[in-house]
Design a protein around this nucleic acid. Structure first.
Lengths: 198, 198
DNA sequence: TGACAAAGCGGAGCAGCGCTCCGGATAGTA
DNA sequence: TACTATCCGGAGCGCTGCTCCGCTTTGTCA
């Protein structure tokens, strides 16, 4: 009971009780607002939803990216941890890569505007981009390397380029029945395969 | 000398001389500002650059999309017209498709923020999206159909999906040496090919 | 040429946003 | 209970998009 979570979260230990409380309130409010208004939602609105002042939000999450990453931290971690698991369980490294990308895409498309934020050149989201890369790039690289090793795909593809490409493909107005990023990503993966490997 | 341009441009015929003059001034100023500040540049800045009031810009180009399309109209037309030309000249329909996409990508990546605007769900850019589709979708469809007909690629790919995917891949902060949309688009095209066609 | 609508123009002004700053409230401690 | 470090709220600034209205310019017709 005394031990907090194993990962390095809870960045408000040692703070005053009201501060800790407010942090959680803001997180919950942000999660709620993000669903309906996207991760671009005005800070004022999130503050109103949480019943706190704007400064409180900025104090706990100096950057919008900090707020967004805090809200989705668990899901991003889960995605990162799924990489090695899939690699161990799947039929082939390439199959693991494909399923992991599916997971990543599922995560992205269900967060209104998150993919847009990831690829935007907006200064406010730079840290968000960095966090995703820090956490997911090594996983992607591992899956990619294993696939090359197994001879499933041709070598030479950079993990960063692939990740960003996938993120880009998931961006834009969603809900358009004419556009399903998954189909294009499947095409991309198809292009990645060795010509001789089926 | 009397005949204007053959295409249906010059939407200011019959207007007063100062209005026509201002329209051209704004167009030139916008082109200049777009290069340095992207298509998101504040209207105020464009107005200042042109030496006119903001209302003048809004009067001639009610929507930001109208201004952007007016600035790039010639290049978009050229891209559209290149489709049939390439189809006639290239070694194969698929080669024509590849070269046409190259042209389109070249156009997109040299316009700072244009690809972002195209895929943004921002209301202000809806007309921009529509214009690109109107003009380029039929061309893409023709090239795609011809490639399928020739047996170069597998059938089933929707032109809209392909176009939007390409646009998406070109979006985001540019100048990153780690990311070249062309490489991913090449992968996409590779995935489009028939397995048996080489 | 001169007068007079009509067409066009400029920028003040409003609303919405991100972000900061500081007087006041509050939690923890002695 | 009294005191201070900590935290809070929202007014306020600067920057946007977009509109509205009094003034200016243009083209026309006698």
């Amino acid at each position: 009971m005394a031990a907090e979570s194993p990962t390095g979260e809870s960045p408000s230990r040692g703070k005053r009780a009201d501060a800790r409380r407010n942090r959680e309130t803001v997180l919950a409010a942000a999660a709620e607002v993000f669903v309906t208004s996207g991760v671009d939602a005005p800070i004022r609105r999130i503050a109103a939803q949480a019943g706190v002042g704007m400064a409180t939000i900025y104090r706990h999450f100096p950057t919008r990216a900090d707020l967004v990453t805090a809200v989705y931290r668990h899901q991003i971690e889960a995605c990162a941890e799924a990489g090695p698991t899939l690699l161990a369980a799947a039929d082939s490294p390439f199959d693991a890569l494909r399923r992991w990308i599916d997971l990543f895409v599922d995560f992205l498309v269900t967060k209104h505007g998150l993919a847009d934020a990831l690829q935007s050149d907006n200064e406010r989201f730079a840290a968000l981009h960095a966090y995703f890369l820090d956490r997911l790039l090594p996983v992607c690289a591992q899956l990619l390397d294993a696939s090359v090793e197994a001879g499933d795909i041709r070598p030479g593809t950079q993990p960063y380029e692939l990740m960003r490409g996938i993120g880009n493909l998931c961006a834009g107005r969603d809900g358009d029945p004419r556009y399903d990023p998954r189909r294009l990503i499947a095409l991309l993966l198809q292009g990645l395969r060795r010509p001789d490997a089926l």
